[in-house]
Amino acid sequence: MADLTIQGLTKRFGGVTAVDDVNLHVADGEFVTLLGPSGCGKSTTLAAVAGLDRADGGRIQVGGTVYFDAARGIYLPPEARSCGLVFQSYALWPHMTVADNVAFPLTLRKVAAAERKRRIDEVLALVEMERYAGRYPHELSGGQQQRVALARTLVYRPAILLLDEPLSNLDAKLRDRARAWLAELRTRLGLTTIYVTHDQIEALSLSDRIVVMNGGRIAQIGTPQEIYERPADPFVADFIGTTNFLPARVVGDAPAGGRALLELADGQRLEAVAERAAPGGSRVTLAFRPEQMQVAPPGTAPEGGSVLATRVTSRSYVGGNWQVGLELAGAALRLEARQPPAEDRLDLWLPHAGGILFRGGADVAA
């Protein structure tokens, strides 16, 4: 195993900069996910580490081996890098059995027959596919084929593991089971891993840290809890989970760590904790999660928050809960409730703490 260091990584395709000055260190045995929308640069970053795309600038080092250094003219081809790469397509040889598919990398490396058999048996047991060693790919489910693809990568003992949306071809139920299995496997392996996905549930449930990317740059790096609870900007807040955004104006100066009095476009007012100083008259956006909101019984004013009058725009049953669409001062909000509101008007309670104040408007994900 080894750590991974990326410094100033840049990759252009014509006039488009796909990866723009990316810096990242992944510790030995750490599982890090590159997360973001299509075109954000996450797969291009992974391809640069694997050597499939030659970067235009920067440096990549795994352990004591420099894979790429633009300044020194160093570029190791993919076959010289100890990277295990698993794509979203299984890429199994259809005319080979499971055992033969897994053996293929060892055959290329001229590993002796006895050692080859020992490694194949070991890795098939690791991915719980030893009973299927004699089957062909068309006799396996999608989840089983993905396990074989992973076993084929692990059998030659790479220094780091690179996974490019490996679960995206599975249906929803298989994906849930595969995610749980992969979480268990990563604990047993302890292998330095870079995982690329646009699925936030995968990122939150599997990762030691998440790297959120946007427009070829890193928007935020943090633990799953940090990314979800303390997003660095409106883009991250919007991309991770469901977030409500409420534009407002600050009434009077608010000190850092103190409460800010906010006025909405319809004249209603509420209070929110300001992590940073907010000058009076400035435009801000208050971001908060649906689970932080509550329905306030008519005529009540629960402590620790503000009550605002809203209009109900939709009610959708999603199994166990209702998603309720609300309109507040021209902003569309989403509330999660056990029961749908009976009236078209609803009093909404927002806590003073828990939301995040961003300066200016909310530049959210597409």
Results as ranks from 00 to 15, higher is better:
6 I>Y: 10
9 L>P: 02
13 F>C: 03
25 H>V: 15
32 V>C: 10
37 P>R: 13
38 S>P: 06
43 S>M: 07
52 L>I: 15
55 A>V: 04
58 G>V: 12
62 V>M: 13
66 V>K: 06
69 D>C: 10
74 I>M: 00
85 L>P: 00
87 F>Y: 04
88 Q>T: 00
107 T>G: 12
111 V>W: 05
114 A>Y: 00
124 L>K: 07
131 R>K: 14
133 A>S: 14
136 Y>P: 02
138 H>I: 08
139 E>F: 02
151 A>Q: 01
157 R>C: 01
157 R>T: 11
158 P>C: 11
158 P>N: 03
158 P>M: 07
170 L>I: 01
176 D>T: 15
184 E>K: 13
185 L>T: 04
193 T>E: 05
197 T>M: 01
197 T>S: 04
215 G>Q: 13
218 I>P: 01
224 P>E: 13
230 R>N: 14
231 P>G: 12
233 D>P: 04
251 V>H: 06
266 D>G: 12
268 Q>W: 07
271 E>L: 14
272 A>D: 10
272 A>P: 09
279 P>Q: 11
285 T>W: 01
285 T>D: 02
288 F>W: 12
301 A>K: 13
315 R>C: 04
315 R>E: 11
320 G>R: 11
331 A>N: 08
331 A>T: 08
359 R>P: 07
362 A>W: 07
364 V>S: 11
